[in-house]
């Protein structure tokens, strides 16, 4: 069964059309990234999936039911962007509160462990740092063992180490056959952690596929390095390369196959390659969302 179906969904706030005829289907068990710039309609779509708001037009189904019914049945858990905690309650009490509202929750110790909160369990929410509070919100999202987990820019307030641990926990949770949909504008996150990337801009889907497909669809990846005074001749004949630009001593190669291009660059040319940079999804993403 499909975990999520959007069927020609539009959402209008006054004059602003936040979501525009959005149609998409997400299979149960998938981990999907919803990628897009601010204002693309990511949070609005997640809000409608959670029955926090209703579509102006179109229908949404969660496991074949309306979002309202799915939420009441305890099938959905979510980490919203905005969501302060009750400062007078401890981490343990907050997790326990939400856990007990679900019909078949995870164990308390398991939730605390997954979210890395075991040591903080007795702390009052009012005294937590931003990153710690974020972990509590993650704990609240998965406490009820929902089949569908929605995460709206989950790593926004986290440092590098917290991020790494967060994604490890997310993977552990998703591994049980659960569906995860996360919104992000960190492109690397989408590439690294999702089976499928849906790029939206202006409330519409502008690209949908694996990260590699999206990069290819937007004209490939970019390899850039300092060329200095060395000759640029022959760069356009390297495997995979579709375009070459040289300016101010910097060579920029556009390629459909980064690995082949790099291998040939080092093996088949005598160039001294310095300050090598690779970029892919970022530029693909800008091209996609800027175009629409």
């Amino acid at each position: 069964m499909n975990a999520i179906v959007f069927d020609h969904v539009s959402k209008r706030f006054g004059d602003v059309l936040a979501v525009d005829e959005l149609s998409l289907t997400i299979a149960a068990g998938a981990t999907v990234a919803l990628l897009g710039p601010n204002g693309a309609g990511k949070s609005t779509s997640i809000g409608m999936l959670l029955a926090l708001s209703r579509p102006t037009r179109g229908t949404i189904a969660v496991h074949g039911r309306t979002p309202e019914r799915a939420v009441l049945a305890g099938e959905v858990g979510a980490m919203l962007q905005q969501g302060e905690l009750i400062p007078e309650l401890s981490v343990r009490e907050l997790v326990e509160l939400v856990r007990r509202l679900y019909p078949a929750p995870l164990g308390l110790a398991e939730v605390l462990e997954l979210a890395g909160l075991t040591e903080l369990a007795r702390r009052r929410a009012g005294g937590l740092s931003g990153g710690q509070a974020q972990r509590v919100r993650f704990a609240l999202a998965l406490a009820g063992a929902p089949r569908l987990l929605l995460l709206d820019e989950p790593t926004a307030a986290m440092d590098v180490e917290s991020r790494r641990r967060f994604w490890d926990s997310m993977r552990a949770y998703a591994a049980g056959g659960r569906t995860v949909l996360f919104a992000s504008h960190y492109l690397a996150e989408a590439e690294e952690h999702a089976d499928r990337v849906i790029v939206i801009a202006g409330g519409r889907v502008v690209a949908d596929g694996t990260a590699a497909q999206i990069k290819a669809g937007a004209g490939g990846q970019v390899v850039r390095f300092a060329l200095g005074e060395q000759p640029a001749a022959g760069l356009d004949r390297l495997p995979g390369v579709t375009a070459v630009e040289v300016g101010a001593g910097i060579a920029t190669l556009r390629t459909r196959d980064t690995d082949a291009t790099l291998a040939a660059l080092y093996r088949d040319t005598a160039l001294d390659v310095r300050d090598l940079e690779l970029s892919g999804l970022d530029e693909a993403f800008l091209a996609l969302t800027g175009r629409s």
Partner: peptide
Amino acid sequence: RSGWLSHLRITPLP
């Protein structure tokens, strides 16, 4: 205001 209400509303609590 703080979003705690939203959090309760996405649980099965009616």
